[in-house]
Every structure is written in C-alpha cells, then in structure tokens.
Amino acid sequence: MEIQIAHYLVVAGILFAVGLTGVVVRRNAIVILMCLELMLNAANLALVAFSRVHRDMQGQVFVFFAITVAAAEAAVMLAIIIAVYRQRQTVNVDEMDLMQG
C-alpha cells in the first residue's frame, strides 16, 4: 500500500493528542514542558507534510520558526522552573496552590 499524505497527518494528530493528554494528566512541570514540545513537533510534521502537498517550501520555512520559538519557550520555562524550585523545592504543579478562590 502506498503511503498517503494523510498518513503523516494522522501520525501528527496522534502525537499532538498524546502530548495534550500528557499536559492534562502529568503533574511534573518539566514533563509537562516536554509534552508541550511534543505537541509543537506534531504541528511541525503536519507543516512538512502539507509543504509537500503544495510543492513549495513555505511550510518548511515555517517549521524553522516553530523550532526557534519552541527553543525560546523551553529556555524561559526551565529558568522559571529553576527559580521556583529554589523557593519551594518542588516542580509538582499540584503543590502550587498558594492562590485559591
């Protein structure tokens, strides 16, 4: 059976869903960040597949920007996690409940 573009989109959809589920069920901030990276990568796969559909490079250029943004986001989030860990000795989002109401 020949591989269709849709196969790639389905893989992208599955990876996106796995990442989303991870963001919802996991409690460790670092692991949540990894799940978010996975979601961005799923979008990248869809972009590359679509760039083949339209036979142009715009989708692949977009992936470049997505990777850069993901890297910047990861750096900032890891910095915040380190700063919070110094205060609280935890990276568990369930324990971050100082504010209620």
Partner: peptide, 13 residues
C-alpha cells in the same frame, strides 16, 4: 484530525 485530513487520503507521497 483524521476527519480533517480526509482530502489527503489518496494523495500519494
């Protein structure tokens, strides 16, 4: 996602 990618079944890579 599968239903959204329906048009891309039958587009051979």
């Amino acid at each position: 996602v599968i239903s959204a990618s329906r048009p891309y079944f039958g587009m051979s890579v």
